[in-house]
Amino acid sequence: MSLNFFFHSTNSIYFLQVSLQSAFLPADKNGNEKMWKYIVKRLLLIFVVLFGVTLVTFSAMHFAPGDPAELIALARYGSDLSSEQIEAVRAMEKLESSVCIQYMKWMDQLLHLDFGKSLISGDDILTEILIRLPATIKLAFSSLCISLLIALPAGILGALHKNTFLGQACVFGSLLGVSIPNFWLGVLFIWLFSLNLGFFPSFGYGGIEHLALPALTLGTSMAAVTTRLTRASMLEALNKEYIITARAKGLDERTVILKHALKNALLPVVTFSGMQLGYLLGGAVVVETVFSWPGIGKLLVDSIFARDFSMVQGCVIFIAVLFSLSNLAVDILYAFLDPRIRYEKHN
Protein backbone atom coordinates (compact mmCIF):
# COMPACT_ATOMS: atom_id res chain seq x y z
CA MET A 1 0.00 0.00 0.00
CA SER A 2 1.41 3.34 -0.92
CA LEU A 3 0.63 6.99 -1.27
CA ASN A 4 -0.15 6.29 -4.88
CA PHE A 5 -2.87 3.93 -3.91
CA PHE A 6 -4.45 6.61 -1.79
CA PHE A 7 -4.60 9.08 -4.63
CA HIS A 8 -5.96 6.55 -7.06
CA SER A 9 -8.69 5.43 -4.74
CA THR A 10 -10.03 8.92 -4.05
CA ASN A 11 -9.81 9.84 -7.70
CA SER A 12 -11.75 6.83 -8.85
CA ILE A 13 -14.41 7.47 -6.21
CA TYR A 14 -14.81 10.89 -7.69
CA PHE A 15 -15.14 9.69 -11.25
CA LEU A 16 -17.51 6.93 -10.27
CA GLN A 17 -19.66 9.45 -8.48
CA VAL A 18 -19.72 11.89 -11.34
CA SER A 19 -20.78 9.26 -13.83
CA LEU A 20 -23.45 7.82 -11.56
CA GLN A 21 -24.60 11.29 -10.69
CA SER A 22 -25.31 12.30 -14.24
CA ALA A 23 -27.32 9.14 -14.76
CA PHE A 24 -29.48 9.88 -11.76
CA LEU A 25 -30.00 13.63 -12.01
CA PRO A 26 -33.73 14.24 -11.93
CA ALA A 27 -35.12 15.38 -15.25
CA ASP A 28 -38.11 17.41 -14.14
CA LYS A 29 -38.17 20.17 -11.67
CA ASN A 30 -41.30 20.09 -9.62
CA GLY A 31 -41.75 19.30 -6.00
CA ASN A 32 -39.59 19.07 -2.93
CA GLU A 33 -40.44 15.40 -2.98
CA LYS A 34 -38.21 15.01 -6.03
CA MET A 35 -35.37 16.66 -4.17
CA TRP A 36 -35.74 14.27 -1.26
CA LYS A 37 -35.92 11.28 -3.54
CA TYR A 38 -32.78 12.51 -5.21
CA ILE A 39 -30.93 12.92 -1.91
CA VAL A 40 -31.94 9.46 -0.73
CA LYS A 41 -30.83 8.02 -4.06
CA ARG A 42 -27.48 9.73 -3.72
CA LEU A 43 -27.05 8.48 -0.15
CA LEU A 44 -27.70 4.93 -1.34
CA LEU A 45 -25.14 5.49 -4.06
CA ILE A 46 -22.63 6.60 -1.48
CA PHE A 47 -23.12 3.25 0.23
CA VAL A 48 -22.36 1.48 -3.03
CA VAL A 49 -19.22 3.58 -3.43
CA LEU A 50 -18.10 2.91 0.12
CA PHE A 51 -18.67 -0.80 -0.33
CA GLY A 52 -16.27 -0.61 -3.26
CA VAL A 53 -13.74 1.26 -1.15
CA THR A 54 -13.82 -1.39 1.59
CA LEU A 55 -13.36 -4.13 -0.99
CA VAL A 56 -10.36 -2.42 -2.50
CA THR A 57 -8.63 -1.53 0.77
CA PHE A 58 -9.27 -4.98 2.17
CA SER A 59 -7.95 -6.74 -0.91
CA ALA A 60 -4.93 -4.50 -1.08
CA MET A 61 -3.92 -5.70 2.34
CA HIS A 62 -4.88 -9.36 2.12
CA PHE A 63 -3.81 -10.14 -1.40
CA ALA A 64 -0.55 -8.26 -1.26
CA PRO A 65 2.46 -10.58 -1.56
CA GLY A 66 3.56 -11.97 1.79
CA ASP A 67 1.87 -13.27 4.88
CA PRO A 68 -0.25 -10.60 6.56
CA ALA A 69 0.51 -12.02 10.00
CA GLU A 70 4.22 -11.71 9.30
CA LEU A 71 3.83 -8.17 8.02
CA ILE A 72 1.93 -7.14 11.12
CA ALA A 73 4.45 -8.82 13.40
CA LEU A 74 7.22 -7.05 11.51
CA ALA A 75 5.52 -3.72 12.07
CA ARG A 76 4.96 -4.43 15.72
CA TYR A 77 8.14 -6.17 16.89
CA GLY A 78 10.83 -5.24 14.42
CA SER A 79 12.91 -7.34 12.05
CA ASP A 80 14.07 -10.43 13.98
CA LEU A 81 10.94 -12.45 14.50
CA SER A 82 10.36 -15.88 15.90
CA SER A 83 7.68 -18.06 14.37
CA GLU A 84 5.88 -18.06 17.74
CA GLN A 85 5.52 -14.30 17.54
CA ILE A 86 4.03 -14.59 14.07
CA GLU A 87 1.58 -17.30 15.15
CA ALA A 88 0.62 -15.25 18.21
CA VAL A 89 -0.20 -12.31 15.93
CA ARG A 90 -2.19 -14.59 13.63
CA ALA A 91 -4.28 -15.81 16.55
CA MET A 92 -4.71 -12.38 18.09
CA GLU A 93 -5.78 -10.65 14.87
CA LYS A 94 -7.98 -13.65 13.94
CA LEU A 95 -6.13 -14.13 10.65
CA GLU A 96 -6.55 -17.90 10.52
CA SER A 97 -10.14 -17.91 9.34
CA SER A 98 -10.91 -17.62 5.61
CA VAL A 99 -10.59 -14.25 3.85
CA CYS A 100 -14.35 -14.09 3.25
CA ILE A 101 -15.19 -14.49 6.88
CA GLN A 102 -12.57 -11.95 7.87
CA TYR A 103 -14.04 -9.46 5.43
CA MET A 104 -17.56 -10.04 6.66
CA LYS A 105 -16.50 -9.62 10.26
CA TRP A 106 -14.73 -6.40 9.40
CA MET A 107 -17.77 -5.10 7.54
CA ASP A 108 -19.95 -5.97 10.51
CA GLN A 109 -17.67 -3.88 12.71
CA LEU A 110 -17.69 -0.98 10.24
CA LEU A 111 -21.47 -0.93 10.09
CA HIS A 112 -21.45 -0.53 13.84
CA LEU A 113 -19.05 2.40 13.38
CA ASP A 114 -16.26 0.35 14.91
CA PHE A 115 -13.14 1.04 12.85
CA GLY A 116 -11.03 -1.34 14.97
CA LYS A 117 -7.76 -0.75 16.75
CA SER A 118 -4.40 0.41 15.58
CA LEU A 119 -2.08 -2.52 14.91
CA ILE A 120 0.84 -0.69 16.50
CA SER A 121 -0.45 1.33 19.41
CA GLY A 122 -3.74 -0.47 19.97
CA ASP A 123 -5.60 2.86 20.11
CA ASP A 124 -9.14 3.10 18.79
CA ILE A 125 -8.88 4.16 15.13
CA LEU A 126 -12.00 6.33 14.96
CA THR A 127 -10.94 8.20 18.11
CA GLU A 128 -7.50 8.81 16.61
CA ILE A 129 -9.03 10.14 13.40
CA LEU A 130 -11.49 12.38 15.23
CA ILE A 131 -8.64 13.82 17.31
CA ARG A 132 -6.94 14.86 14.05
CA LEU A 133 -10.10 16.19 12.43
CA PRO A 134 -10.08 19.75 13.91
CA ALA A 135 -6.59 20.44 12.59
CA THR A 136 -7.60 19.29 9.12
CA ILE A 137 -10.82 21.32 9.20
CA LYS A 138 -8.94 24.47 10.25
CA LEU A 139 -6.41 24.06 7.48
CA ALA A 140 -9.08 23.24 4.90
CA PHE A 141 -11.26 26.28 5.55
CA SER A 142 -8.44 28.78 5.92
CA SER A 143 -6.74 27.66 2.72
CA LEU A 144 -10.07 27.76 0.88
CA CYS A 145 -10.59 31.33 2.08
CA ILE A 146 -7.11 32.36 0.96
CA SER A 147 -7.67 30.66 -2.37
CA LEU A 148 -10.95 32.47 -3.02
CA LEU A 149 -9.55 35.81 -1.85
CA ILE A 150 -6.87 35.51 -4.51
CA ALA A 151 -8.78 33.69 -7.23
CA LEU A 152 -11.97 35.73 -7.48
CA PRO A 153 -10.37 39.16 -8.02
CA ALA A 154 -7.62 37.69 -10.21
CA GLY A 155 -10.09 35.72 -12.30
CA ILE A 156 -12.40 38.68 -12.77
CA LEU A 157 -9.54 41.03 -13.64
CA GLY A 158 -8.11 38.42 -15.99
CA ALA A 159 -11.43 38.23 -17.82
CA LEU A 160 -12.05 41.98 -17.97
CA HIS A 161 -8.58 42.91 -19.15
CA LYS A 162 -7.88 39.88 -21.23
CA ASN A 163 -5.85 41.76 -23.80
CA THR A 164 -3.81 43.93 -21.47
CA PHE A 165 -0.70 43.38 -19.40
CA LEU A 166 -2.73 43.06 -16.20
CA GLY A 167 -4.91 40.31 -17.62
CA GLN A 168 -1.95 38.45 -19.04
CA ALA A 169 -0.20 38.72 -15.67
CA CYS A 170 -3.19 37.04 -14.01
CA VAL A 171 -3.09 34.22 -16.55
CA PHE A 172 0.66 33.84 -16.20
CA GLY A 173 0.47 33.84 -12.41
CA SER A 174 -2.14 31.12 -12.35
CA LEU A 175 -0.22 29.08 -14.90
CA LEU A 176 2.82 29.35 -12.66
CA GLY A 177 0.73 28.34 -9.66
CA VAL A 178 -0.63 25.28 -11.42
CA SER A 179 2.83 24.12 -12.44
CA ILE A 180 4.54 24.53 -9.07
CA PRO A 181 4.22 21.40 -6.94
CA ASN A 182 2.92 21.81 -3.40
CA PHE A 183 5.91 20.37 -1.59
CA TRP A 184 8.26 22.70 -3.43
CA LEU A 185 6.12 25.76 -2.73
CA GLY A 186 5.89 24.70 0.91
CA VAL A 187 9.64 24.42 1.22
CA LEU A 188 10.07 27.75 -0.56
CA PHE A 189 7.68 29.43 1.90
CA ILE A 190 9.52 27.89 4.84
CA TRP A 191 12.81 29.15 3.48
CA LEU A 192 11.44 32.63 2.78
CA PHE A 193 9.00 33.41 5.59
CA SER A 194 10.38 31.24 8.33
CA LEU A 195 14.13 30.93 7.90
CA ASN A 196 14.91 34.25 6.21
CA LEU A 197 12.24 36.64 7.40
CA GLY A 198 11.30 34.85 10.60
CA PHE A 199 7.62 35.78 10.28
CA PHE A 200 6.12 32.37 11.04
CA PRO A 201 7.24 29.09 12.59
CA SER A 202 8.03 26.48 9.97
CA PHE A 203 6.11 23.62 11.57
CA GLY A 204 3.89 22.63 14.47
CA TYR A 205 0.39 23.16 15.62
CA GLY A 206 -1.18 25.84 17.78
CA GLY A 207 -2.10 29.41 17.03
CA ILE A 208 -2.67 31.28 13.83
CA GLU A 209 1.07 31.73 13.28
CA HIS A 210 1.38 27.97 12.81
CA LEU A 211 -1.56 27.93 10.43
CA ALA A 212 -0.17 30.71 8.23
CA LEU A 213 2.39 28.87 6.13
CA PRO A 214 0.52 25.63 5.42
CA ALA A 215 -2.68 27.57 4.65
CA LEU A 216 -0.77 29.95 2.39
CA THR A 217 0.87 27.07 0.55
CA LEU A 218 -2.37 25.21 -0.01
CA GLY A 219 -4.38 28.38 -0.64
CA THR A 220 -2.10 29.78 -3.33
CA SER A 221 -1.78 26.50 -5.16
CA MET A 222 -5.56 26.02 -5.09
CA ALA A 223 -6.06 29.62 -6.18
CA ALA A 224 -4.20 28.90 -9.41
CA VAL A 225 -6.85 26.52 -10.73
CA THR A 226 -9.76 28.54 -9.32
CA THR A 227 -8.44 31.68 -11.01
CA ARG A 228 -8.44 29.97 -14.37
CA LEU A 229 -11.94 28.65 -13.81
CA THR A 230 -13.25 32.03 -12.63
CA ARG A 231 -11.70 33.76 -15.61
CA ALA A 232 -13.10 31.25 -18.10
CA SER A 233 -16.62 31.30 -16.71
CA MET A 234 -16.55 35.08 -16.39
CA LEU A 235 -15.53 35.38 -20.05
CA GLU A 236 -18.35 33.04 -20.98
CA ALA A 237 -20.92 35.01 -18.97
CA LEU A 238 -19.75 38.32 -20.45
CA ASN A 239 -20.49 36.97 -23.91
CA LYS A 240 -24.11 36.19 -23.15
CA GLU A 241 -27.11 38.10 -24.47
CA TYR A 242 -28.36 39.03 -21.01
CA ILE A 243 -25.25 41.17 -20.59
CA ILE A 244 -26.36 43.21 -23.60
CA THR A 245 -29.82 43.53 -22.08
CA ALA A 246 -28.22 44.76 -18.86
CA ARG A 247 -26.20 47.36 -20.77
CA ALA A 248 -29.28 48.35 -22.76
CA LYS A 249 -30.98 49.26 -19.50
CA GLY A 250 -28.33 51.92 -19.03
CA LEU A 251 -26.78 50.24 -15.97
CA ASP A 252 -23.21 51.17 -15.19
CA GLU A 253 -20.43 48.79 -16.08
CA ARG A 254 -19.84 47.85 -12.43
CA THR A 255 -23.41 46.60 -12.00
CA VAL A 256 -23.29 44.80 -15.32
CA ILE A 257 -20.11 42.96 -14.37
CA LEU A 258 -20.48 42.40 -10.64
CA LYS A 259 -24.18 41.64 -10.67
CA HIS A 260 -25.24 40.30 -14.02
CA ALA A 261 -22.10 38.50 -15.15
CA LEU A 262 -20.53 37.48 -11.84
CA LYS A 263 -23.66 35.94 -10.43
CA ASN A 264 -23.75 33.54 -13.35
CA ALA A 265 -20.00 33.03 -13.48
CA LEU A 266 -19.86 32.05 -9.82
CA LEU A 267 -22.01 28.93 -10.24
CA PRO A 268 -19.22 26.64 -11.49
CA VAL A 269 -16.73 28.28 -9.12
CA VAL A 270 -18.90 27.44 -6.11
CA THR A 271 -19.20 23.83 -7.24
CA PHE A 272 -15.50 23.54 -7.81
CA SER A 273 -14.59 25.14 -4.48
CA GLY A 274 -16.97 22.80 -2.70
CA MET A 275 -15.24 19.87 -4.31
CA GLN A 276 -11.85 21.25 -3.34
CA LEU A 277 -13.07 21.58 0.22
CA GLY A 278 -14.21 17.95 0.21
CA TYR A 279 -10.78 16.98 -1.01
CA LEU A 280 -9.05 19.07 1.67
CA LEU A 281 -11.23 17.66 4.43
CA GLY A 282 -9.75 14.29 3.60
CA GLY A 283 -6.41 15.72 4.67
CA ALA A 284 -3.88 17.50 2.53
CA VAL A 285 -1.30 14.74 2.55
CA VAL A 286 1.68 16.58 1.14
CA VAL A 287 1.28 19.92 2.88
CA GLU A 288 0.40 18.38 6.24
CA THR A 289 3.54 16.28 5.98
CA VAL A 290 5.82 19.13 4.94
CA PHE A 291 4.61 21.33 7.82
CA SER A 292 4.08 18.51 10.35
CA TRP A 293 0.48 19.61 10.60
CA PRO A 294 -1.27 17.01 12.79
CA GLY A 295 -4.26 16.39 10.50
CA ILE A 296 -5.74 13.34 8.86
CA GLY A 297 -3.34 13.48 5.94
CA LYS A 298 -0.36 13.36 8.28
CA LEU A 299 -1.97 10.48 10.20
CA LEU A 300 -2.40 8.57 6.95
CA VAL A 301 1.19 9.08 5.89
CA ASP A 302 2.54 8.20 9.32
CA SER A 303 0.45 5.02 9.39
CA ILE A 304 1.71 4.05 5.97
CA PHE A 305 5.32 4.41 7.05
CA ALA A 306 4.60 2.55 10.30
CA ARG A 307 2.84 -0.22 8.33
CA ASP A 308 -0.22 0.27 10.50
CA PHE A 309 -2.57 -1.31 7.97
CA SER A 310 -5.74 -1.13 9.98
CA MET A 311 -5.18 2.58 10.61
CA VAL A 312 -4.60 3.15 6.89
CA GLN A 313 -7.81 1.29 6.08
CA GLY A 314 -9.72 3.35 8.63
CA CYS A 315 -8.33 6.63 7.25
CA VAL A 316 -9.13 5.75 3.64
CA ILE A 317 -12.71 4.84 4.49
CA PHE A 318 -13.17 7.94 6.60
CA ILE A 319 -11.80 10.12 3.81
CA ALA A 320 -14.07 8.43 1.29
CA VAL A 321 -17.11 9.12 3.47
CA LEU A 322 -16.19 12.79 3.91
CA PHE A 323 -15.52 13.21 0.22
CA SER A 324 -18.81 11.63 -0.84
CA LEU A 325 -20.85 13.60 1.65
CA SER A 326 -19.25 16.91 0.74
CA ASN A 327 -19.88 16.21 -2.94
CA LEU A 328 -23.52 15.62 -2.15
CA ALA A 329 -23.59 18.85 -0.17
CA VAL A 330 -22.13 20.70 -3.16
CA ASP A 331 -24.82 19.31 -5.45
CA ILE A 332 -27.56 20.41 -3.09
CA LEU A 333 -25.97 23.83 -2.72
CA TYR A 334 -25.78 24.16 -6.50
CA ALA A 335 -29.46 23.31 -6.80
CA PHE A 336 -30.22 26.17 -4.45
CA LEU A 337 -27.93 28.63 -6.24
CA ASP A 338 -29.15 27.91 -9.74
CA PRO A 339 -32.87 28.61 -10.04
CA ARG A 340 -33.03 26.48 -13.17
CA ILE A 341 -32.20 23.36 -11.16
CA ARG A 342 -33.94 24.43 -7.99
CA TYR A 343 -36.83 22.18 -7.25
CA GLU A 344 -39.80 24.29 -6.43
CA LYS A 345 -43.51 23.93 -6.97
CA HIS A 346 -45.03 26.10 -9.66
CA ASN A 347 -47.65 25.76 -12.32
Binding site: Y242, I244, T245, K259, H260, N264, L267, D338, P339, R340
Partner: peptide, 12 residues
Amino acid sequence: LQNPAQALNPVL
Protein backbone atom coordinates in the same frame (compact mmCIF):
# COMPACT_ATOMS: atom_id res chain seq x y z
CA LEU B 1 -33.54 41.85 -27.82
CA GLN B 2 -34.22 38.83 -29.99
CA ASN B 3 -34.68 35.51 -28.07
CA PRO B 4 -35.87 36.50 -24.59
CA ALA B 5 -34.82 33.11 -23.22
CA GLN B 6 -31.22 34.21 -23.68
CA ALA B 7 -31.72 37.93 -23.22
CA LEU B 8 -33.04 37.55 -19.67
CA ASN B 9 -30.63 36.80 -16.85
CA PRO B 10 -31.30 33.22 -15.68
CA VAL B 11 -30.21 33.72 -12.07
CA LEU B 12 -32.12 36.91 -11.27
